[in-house]
């Protein structure tokens, strides 16, 4: 096999993994922008999406699309419960305490999933067949097209929601200044809850569309969560294009690094990038530096 098509393969692989990271990163960004906390249970929503779908498919004899909708609904419910039971009861605490609570919640959700569903890995059937598609001598699966398509849809929906809808604008207002937002009549609590709803839904969606490719088990959330976190850090915590580019960049570097340097360091690339960004440009690669007005 000649070198150009090898390169195309690395790029395709990198982009499709990157799209997944971006989607998971979105969940981080939305909650961070509404509440100022980093939700480290984001990876668990990804796991819940995949596991719920498999669980529903094996117990109820319903078509895949129905199962997916139900699985997203269940995962979102877990997100709501999480916010109501673990985040809202704490008033006037530092964001750091909340971040630690999300780590606790992620361990709890993972443990519960292990007890309920066991430790086995499960595979979800592909949405549209298993025959690979050829692109310039490289191959991708039809499922990759689903991943690209859904990621693009979610980016557009996000943009529309946060820029044009009243609810989206209200959420942004809370993120900017919760106190001022409450003075103009925005219910901050509802907005925080809503941010958990949206990010749980997006996270579980990500978990479902990747499950046919990567398979899923109770512990897939850890690594995917970290990769999503890297994507959002590179993107500077934006819930828009920055995170998408961050995810794609991470996916590409991983895949090219594994192909041309060594696959043993695949995960190390993600962390090296994360550290470099945090050292050199903590505000993210694609964000303009905020200017303080005096």
């Amino acid at each position: 096999m000649d070198n150009p098509s090898q390169l195309v393969q690395y790029i395709l692989t990198g982009l499709s993994n990157g799209a997944i990271y971006a989607l998971i990163g979105f969940g981080f960004a939305i909650i961070h922008n509404a509440t100022g906390i980093l939700n480290f249970a984001q990876g668990e929503f990804v796991m819940l999406g995949g596991m719920f779908t498999i669980f529903i498919l094996s117990f109820l004899n319903i078509p895949l699309p129905m199962a997916i909708v139900l699985a997203i609904a269940f995962s979102t419910l877990v997100g709501i419960l999480f916010e109501r039971l673990a985040i809202r009861p704490l008033k006037n605490v530092k964001p750091l305490s909340l971040v630690i609570i999300t780590i606790g919640a992620s361990i709890f959700i993972r443990g519960a999933a292990m007890l309920i569903w066991g430790k086995d890995t499960h595979a979800l059937p592909a949405f549209s067949g298993n025959e690979p598609l050829y692109v310039y001598g490289a191959t991708i699966m039809p499922q990759h097209l689903w991943i690209f398509g859904i990621t693009i849809l979610i980016i557009i929906a996000n943009k529309l929601f946060f820029s044009y809808s009243i609810l989206g604008k209200a959420m942004r207002a809370c993120a900017y200044n919760a106190y001022a937002a409450s003075l103009v009549g925005i219910d901050v609590k509802i907005m925080v809850l809503l941010s958990f709803v949206v990010s749980a839904a997006i996270g579980s969606m990500a978990g479902i569309i990747i499950a046919p490719l990567t398979m899923t088990s109770y512990d897939v959330g850890i690594m995917l969560g970290i990769k999503g976190f890297c994507a959002v850090i590179i993107g500077g915590m934006s819930s828009g294009l920055g995170t998408v580019l961050g995810g794609l960049l991470l996916g590409l570097l991983e895949s090219l690094g594994a192909g041309y340097i060594s696959a043993s360091y695949k995960d190390a690339f993600a962390f090296i990038i994360l550290l470099l960004i945090l050292f050199i440009r903590p505000e993210g690669l694609f964000k303009q530096k905020e200017t303080q007005r005096v």
């Binding site: 393969q9 990567t214 895949s255 696959a263």
Partner: peptide
């Protein structure tokens, strides 16, 4: 979750 890079090599 993806070994296509190694397999391409």
């Amino acid at each position: 979750t993806d070994m296509t890079a190694q397999l391409t090599k």
